[in-house]
Every structure is written in C-alpha cells, then in structure tokens.
Amino acid sequence: MTQPAPHTVATLAGDLRALGLTGGDTVLVHTSVRSIGFVAGAVQAVVQALLDAVGPSGTLVVPTQTPANTDPAGWVNPPVPAAWWPIIREQSLGFDPLRTPSQWVGILPEIVRTWPGARRSEHPQLSFAALGARAAEIVGEHPLTEGFGERSPLGAVYRLGGKVLLIGCGHQRNTSLHLAETRQEQPPMVGFGSAVRGPDGTSRWVTWTAPDQDVTHFEEIGAAFEATGAAVVGAVGDATARLMPQRALVDFATAWLAGV
C-alpha cells in the first residue's frame, strides 16, 4: 500500500490559505502539533507555514502561559505540602519574558516564543507571544489585572479584527472566550499571585485580583458559535482545523454568557 507523502511547509501553507488565512491577517493560534501528522521539518515547519500564510504584513500570536508561576496554595496537579508554600513564593524566579518557558500550551508556542523577532507580553501567568508586523502593538501592554481583559493581547487582537485558529484542538483551549468572561456585568473575582522579576534582577511575590477563569461552558459556546456558520472547518495536514473571526466569536460568547 502506498504511503501518503509527508506534509511540508508548502502543503500546510496551502491548507491554511484554503481555510481562509490570508496575507496581512492577525491570527491567534491554538494547536496540537501531533494531530497534524508527519511534517517534513517538524514543528518548525508548521510555524513557517503559518508565517508564510499571513505573509510579512501579518502577525502570528500564541499563548505562552506559565501555570507553575501561580500561588502554590491552589495547585492540584499535583498539590504540594502547605509547608512548602512560603518557600515557593519567596524563592521562585520572577517571570522573565526572555527566559521563562511556556508550559502546558504545547510545543508550537515555545517555538514561536524563541523565534527571531518574537515579542512576548510581561504578564507573569498569562503571557502571549507574537511574531510579525503588529507584534509590538499586540503584546506591548498587559497589566496584572487584565490577564485576559481589554488591555491584554486578547483585547488587542479584538481591536485589530484578528482571527482565531484552532488546529487539532477544541474550544476548551480557545482563550479568546476568556475575554468574553471579563465583559460580563459582574464577573466573579478571585485572587492571584506570582513571582515577578524586577529591573534589578531580583524576584518578589505579588498578588492581585482579577476575573475568574472558567472553561466549563467553552465547548458548548464554541459549538453554538459554529452552528451560526461563522467558523470555517477544514483540514490542516491530518488535523481538523477551525478558523473564525475573533471579534464575532467574543461578541457571541459575551451575549451567550450573559444569558446563562
């Protein structure tokens, strides 16, 4: 039996263009690289295909979150002894956009984060990296209290009329839906904590209050949004991909959550 040819930068870029990604687009990507299948050049080729699809005037955005830099009192996977909590808070290295690796968001965001010319926002837990023409504009502002809010990279993508691309993953990983959470009339607020690196290189523990993050309804919201016909579903390599306008998605989710 003849084996199918491996995917390449050119074939993946073609799939992305067929899905609707075009030159000049700003696109926020969530992906399971494994779902794409065998790619000549591996994950680096996937990033290059995305960059080729949006072209030199476009911008690629990815989440580069750091869940290990959170308050250990809330850790459950796995939990740590309470006696360790003050040591972790006092001794953790502060978040550094250049040095601190992303976690639990897949390998592609880490490749984008370290790509020449990439920029990263400075939020110690919920950072994003961007690569391309609007990178500095997208990640330049990211206050502690706006992890997923209006002044976060999610809000910047919204204002720029960007797109969301899910490759081989569902809406549970669709961070743009968190922007809709922050737009509720009275979102539930919770406390957060992280180690932050100061200008002198020393670390300190900081705390703040911000809207809670709850993905419980994300798959349901995503399915309802897709039912409107606003998302394009197609193949990128072997993966099922979904491309959608972020502004329409967030506006839909904002209304959906208000009606729950």
Results as ranks from 00 to 15, higher is better:
Ala195Glu: 00
Ala195His: 03
Ala195Arg: 09
Arg197Phe: 00
Gly198Val: 10
Gly198Asn: 13
Gly198Asp: 12
Gly198Thr: 05
Pro199Val: 02
Pro199Leu: 12
Pro199Gly: 05
Pro199Trp: 06
Pro199Gln: 11
Asp200Glu: 15
Asp200Arg: 10
Thr202Phe: 07
Thr202Ala: 04
Ser203Ile: 13
Arg204Lys: 15
Trp205Asn: 08
Trp205His: 03
Val206Asn: 00
Thr207Trp: 00
Trp208Arg: 11
Trp208Leu: 12
Thr209Arg: 13
Thr209Met: 13
Thr209Ala: 05
Ala210Trp: 07
Pro211Lys: 00
Asp212Ile: 09
Asp214Cys: 07
Asp214Ile: 13
Asp214Trp: 05
Asp214Leu: 02
Thr216Asn: 01
His217Tyr: 14
Glu219Phe: 05
Glu219Val: 03
Glu219Ile: 03
Glu219Gly: 13
Glu219Ala: 14
Glu220Leu: 08
Ile221Leu: 10
Ile221Thr: 06
Ile221Glu: 03
Ile221Ser: 04
Gly222His: 10
Gly222Met: 03
Ala224Glu: 11
Ala224Leu: 07
Glu226Asp: 14
Glu226Phe: 00
Ala227Asp: 11
Ala227Val: 05
Ala227His: 01
Thr228Val: 11
Thr228Gln: 03
Gly229Asn: 09
Gly229Pro: 02
Gly229Trp: 13
Gly229Thr: 12
Ala230Ile: 04
Ala231Thr: 14
Ala231Leu: 02
Ala231Arg: 00
Ala231Met: 13
Val232Phe: 02
Val233Arg: 14
Gly234Asn: 11
Ala235Ser: 03
Val236Gln: 05
Gly237Arg: 14
